[in-house]
Write a protein that binds this DNA or RNA. Sequence first.
DNA 1: TCGTGAATTGTGATAATATAACAGAGGGCG
DNA 2: CGCCCTCTGTTATATTATCACAATTCACGA
Lengths: 159, 159
Amino acid sequence: METTGFERHDHGACIRDGVSAVDARCRELGLQFTPVRRRVLELLLEGHRALGAYDILDRLREEGLGSQPPVAYRALDFLVKHGFAHKIERLNAFVACACPGESHMPAFLICRQCDKVAEAEADMRDGRLGESAAAVGFRIERAVVEAEGLCPSCQGAAA
Amino acid sequence: METTGFERHDHGACIRDGVSAVDARCRELGLQFTPVRRRVLELLLEGHRALGAYDILDRLREEGLGSQPPVAYRALDFLVKHGFAHKIERLNAFVACACPGESHMPAFLICRQCDKVAEAEADMRDGRLGESAAAVGFRIERAVVEAEGLCPSCQGAAA
DNA sequence: TCGTGAATTGTGATAATATAACAGAGGGCG
DNA sequence: CGCCCTCTGTTATATTATCACAATTCACGA
């Protein structure tokens, strides 16, 4: 289990790699990685932050890539459906996936101060929740796991 | 760790006990358990299902207890704030708390077929997510844990 | 008991998030 | 070319949630 997002890293590479990984994956799967979809992914990769659909729509509008909600929602649906982005239910917002292509049950660490979001792997079917689900005979298919708190640098800033 | 909601149980008692537990707790804490708040809690306890704010508002309207959204939202905010109910982010809906009064980090098992919701205890600060959060120095304060899948009886029905 | 301030409720308006429906554009392929 | 399929553009609308402010009710001490 690993996390990304709070450590410092080469963020330019982070965007480039994210986009090209998705690009490759789309080629593999025969999916169309259109300009709107690509741009939305770039926007999501820009900060390790969750962006609302309307934030994204505003950016698209500025750039002449579309002006109505369905444009943004369709691109986001595409990205989410294929695992290139995730929806953060707690925030009604979206983040780029930290490891596109790998199938996983993501969990998120959301800083309430700076709004950064890190992605971790946490398959709930193992572990204690999985046990208690199994105990009552519930079969877990998907899970939303969103932890909220303070990231390391905001803890430092508070002190 | 225990769950409730999928086992069969005396549901009449379930509502009565839920309401009176909250009633007692409000008395303890000097909170006003007003008619609207009581009624909303009863509605939430009726099925072990998540109800949307507007579903609740419709019921309140029928009963002459209020007709505008803030009436429902304020009652729900009260119940959630004091731990008598929880919001299911995945569904934008609300459920009564299975063990009001006890402070806890609830997790939910949501059946995608029958919409029933069971509550389990799952403190994310322990376990593997907690470890990986600790590893990057993230301090978890709250967590949304919502597992979706099939409850025992819906698995049976599917077969 | 009464006054006072705080909490609660009533109501209209509006914000924020999300989807439906259908027409048009474009590309691959017979 | 003509057909089909996917993607895009656009209007309209649905769903979820909050703001603002007036009216009322309630708790509590004088």
